[in-house]
Write a protein that binds this DNA or RNA. Structure first.
Lengths: 199, 199
DNA sequence: ACCTGAACACCGTTCAAGT
DNA sequence: ACCTGAACACCGTTCAAGT
């Protein structure tokens, strides 16, 4: 059992930084996130992170990107092995999104506070693009089945996604009255169905 | 013209701190907000702010509270001297909220990121309470006129507010595609009307 | 009551230098 | 290539002391 005299750090500093960063984000909030503390936790010098992220902001951007990737996967997974009616698929997607939001409140906040200028991270906007296409696909499928009103998919999808996101944001910021968590999500889903149903 | 040899600072340090803080919040974002810089800008020592805000967080809380107060006023004002139909009143309120959001993006973010535990600022939750009552009143009035479906006002009002807030949040975080700003708000308003109309 | 100055324990970022 | 150590210019917070 050759105890390697610890390698450069313990494998992959870049990945380790991201993992640890997300933990402290979840546990102690975004303001408590410090590069120096991260480095201390991982047993490297405080200057080491700069080899992998030129900036603190660069680390936050990478965190946001990873978040969007995971959210995309979760939303895609919510559509697997499920009924084909629009109501069922919408229900699953809404619950997937809200579930992710409540389980990763601080991360979602970060994801939406990262600047979304076109100049910003190429990969990030590509990722956003990818999963926003999923809600568009949901709407298009609903239209094919005659369960969603006619019209440009983007223009119908926007209010739908807007409602979904608004509920998730309010829920995670603790602004919803306690009674709301009871029927709140059900009411929101029913309301989306009414808003997107054919006349 | 007696040049008073500058008073303690220049009038009311507490108010001056809040004003300046909101300016830098708007111009340079929340991470650039520093107590020491605020103090420098106002020509007082870096320890002076602590007489008026025990904490940096206390200043942020006060900022958020002021924001909710102003938002409440704006939404109330949007209902003055306007037609009585639900469609008109809803339209005015949505535009008031979204207008405030886009004009004060960073502040709105701050308002919703302040912890909303019941233990948090008494005044803050009272203020939130006050203006959330306004949307409830809008719904109740619409029901009286037979333009909004029957049911508990809170359960009908939640999806409505959720949509409104979601749009404002997406718009201010720059996540809406450029095409969306064209018809986006109109579409959202029409969708809210459909979602809350009687069957 | 309101503010100052110094002190303490932190930050992010940069850069020579080591292996 | 990857990391260290020291240095620089910042932070927030506290506390004796001044007026």
């Amino acid at each position: 059992m050759p105890t390697r005299p610890r390698p450069y750090h313990h494998g992959d500093l870049r990945a380790a930084l991201l993992t640890r960063a997300e933990e402290t984000l979840r546990e102690k909030g975004p303001t408590a996130l410090s590069l120096r503390e991260l480095a201390r936790d991982l047993g490297v010098s405080h200057a080491a992170p700069s080899r992998h992220f030129k900036d603190k902001q660069a680390l936050l951007d990478a965190l946001a990107l990873a978040g969007f990737e995971r959210l995309g996967e979760i939303m895609a997974a919510s559509q697997e092995g499920i009924g084909e009616s629009f109501a069922e698929r919408l229900d699953a997607m809404v619950r997937a999104y809200v579930g992710f939001a409540t389980a990763n409140a601080a991360l979602l906040d970060l994801m939406y506070s990262v600047k979304h200028d076109p100049e910003a991270s190429e990969a990030l906007s590509a990722s956003v693009q990818r999963w926003s296409a999923q809600t568009v696909e949901l709407i298009a499928e609903g239209q094919r089945r005659g369960e969603v009103r006619e019209g440009p998919v983007e223009r119908i999808g926007l209010p739908v996604f807007t409602t979904l996101h608004g509920y998730a944001d309010l829920a995670t910021s603790g602004m919803l009255p306690p009674e709301a968590t009871e029927h709140g999500l059900d009411d929101v889903i029913a309301y989306i169905l009414r808003g997107s149903a054919p006349d």
